[in-house]
């Protein structure tokens, strides 16, 4: 699953540390989510989206695999 966290963070001039404090996770979690290595739970995805005043669909891009 791709996401626009880095892009949104840069546009709002928020650091990874600041975002991690807002959503209550470690900075490592934000790094892992940004780089696509870890898919957050629905609750964390909602909290991240809320931090940017966006909906989950605006932040996370779900890519269906093998569906034509």
């Amino acid at each position: 699953m791709k996401n626009r966290i880095r892009e949104l963070r840069k546009s709002k001039k928020i650091t990874q540390e600041e975002l991690s404090k807002v959503v209550g996770v470690s900075r490592q979690s934000i790094i892992a989510i940004e780089s696509g290595k870890f898919n957050p739970s629905l609750e964390l995805a909602y909290n991240i989206s809320k931090a940017f005043n966006c909906t989950i669909e605006e932040v996370f891009i779900f890519e269906e695999e093998g569906m034509d």
Partner: peptide, 11 residues
């Protein structure tokens, strides 16, 4: 780890 919010879902 708790002080740095490290005990999260990634942990």
């Amino acid at each position: 780890a708790r002080k740095n919010r490290g005990l999260d879902e990634l942990h």
